[in-house]
Design a protein around this nucleic acid. Structure first.
Ligand SMILES: [Mn+2]
Ligand SMILES: [Mn+2]
Ligand SMILES: [Mn+2]
Ligand SMILES: [Mn+2]
Lengths: 220, 220
DNA sequence: TTAGTGTTTTAGTCTTGGCTAAAAATATGA
DNA sequence: TCATATTTTTAGCCAAGACTAAAACACTAA
């Protein structure tokens, strides 16, 4: 059973909202994610249910099926491989790739993806540090580590925060640290564990050990 | 004014049928080319007329406008650049690229095409020997020469025939020479101008000067 | 000049993926 | 438990792009 572009986009959204097919997802959440109205979502859920990529019980939200998970991961795989291509080969910036990949991921050609994968040397992560599922849908999660666990001169990228309180996020915003920022450890003070971090190759930032422990990064 | 994928496909078909925007094109011809019904074409012609990419007079066929020609050439440019990418970078065979390029040509991103062009080193011809329009829609036609004008050891590709009589085509068919075949001149007999041609790197073919003079090729 | 023939358009229908407004079901809390 | 609030679905509508059947038009040949 083939999925349309719209169906693929919905399924991908449901997969993400379900935290990797673990929790069930509400109509309203899907509508918010897809920037459509709940009424449109109800319609689409019925179709996806008929195609057996989700399990749909009216009024009780949806759960993605095994088949649906497989399909979603294929689309995600294609999306991320294209992102790697755009950054590595076509010199796109980091934040310019998502929109285009959102279109490219729907091109139907198994051969194309197989060859692209090989051409890119079978990358395991996309430019945002997200793992690229293999052709069977298996994902290798990249270890994330807190900033205070990194050593001097190590580089990486901020991918998440442990403490996501408004106060903390506001602080990060103020000092110019954001999800996706490329960072490098310039110094670590033995005495109190405070750190000096280079952000985006231009801005130097001092932070306490407490702050550093709440910022998660991937190494590069 | 943006065009939908369907509109781009129609416009490209009309451009091709009109021999590069020179002659007018009938509803039936478009229907045949697009493998749809004339009724569907009438509908689409009205839309393309409204968008002023064609001039549409009911019952009298269409002529492509300057704007339409520009749009069609942009789509053709994208199609052919992707074909080059697939063959040169992803090792696609010659005859495997068209379908995929037919999808890729609709990806909307000027930056993407600009970067792809540069990445491929600004190719002037696609894998089928067809010229790639530049970003302003200018086309550099590749010189075609008759086989008997080629020298020993030169390689190329058959792109057309001068004599398109059934008899000649039947003959070509029988000996395994076809539009698109890759050829190499193995020998040329001084005495009568007859030639020995290697077809598709496997089949050797002898032909008279008369025959050779009626086959057009591009060099590679 | 007109009848016939083939081409093209129109009218009406379908599917997909949107929308709004209204109805129905579920959840909450007094 | 029951009234109200929230969520979700249904009903009805729209646009794009297909289709079939029927009507309108253009061209040709008598
Ligand atoms: Mn997408
Ligand atoms: Mn990504
Ligand atoms: Mn196309
Ligand atoms: Mn081509």
């Amino acid at each position: 059973m083939t999925l349309t572009t719209a169906e693929e986009n919905y399924l991908k959204a449901i997969y993400h909202l379900s935290d990797g097919a673990t929790k069930s997802v509400s109509t309203n959440d899907v509508a918010a994610e897809m920037k459509t109205k709940p009424a449109s979502v109800s319609d689409m859920l019925r179709k996806l249910g008929d195609k057996e990529v989700i399990e749909y019980r009216k009024y009780y939200g949806v759960n993605i099926t095994e088949e649906g998970k497989k399909r979603a991961l294929q689309t995600i795989r294609k999306h991320r491989l294209w992102e790697v291509f755009l950054v590595e080969k076509l010199q796109f910036a980091w934040d310019e790739v998502h929109e285009v990949a959102e279109e490219l991921e729907h091109i139907q050609s198994p051969l194309l993806i197989q060859r692209l994968d090989s051409y890119l040397n079978f990358p395991k992560f996309d430019p945002h540090g997200d793992p690229i599922p293999d052709e069977y849908g298996d994902v290798r999660a990249r270890p994330r580590l807190a900033l205070n666990e990194m050593d001097i001169d190590q580089s990486g990228q901020i991918v998440a925060v442990k403490d996501s309180s408004a106060a903390f996020l506001k602080y990060l915003d103020k000092v110019g640290a954001y999800i996706g920022a490329r960072i490098k450890v310039l110094d670590k003070v033995e005495f109190d564990g405070s750190m000096e971090i280079l952000v985006d190759q231009k801005k130097t930032l001092f932070m306490s050990k407490d702050v550093a422990a709440n910022i998660l990064a991937i190494q590069s």
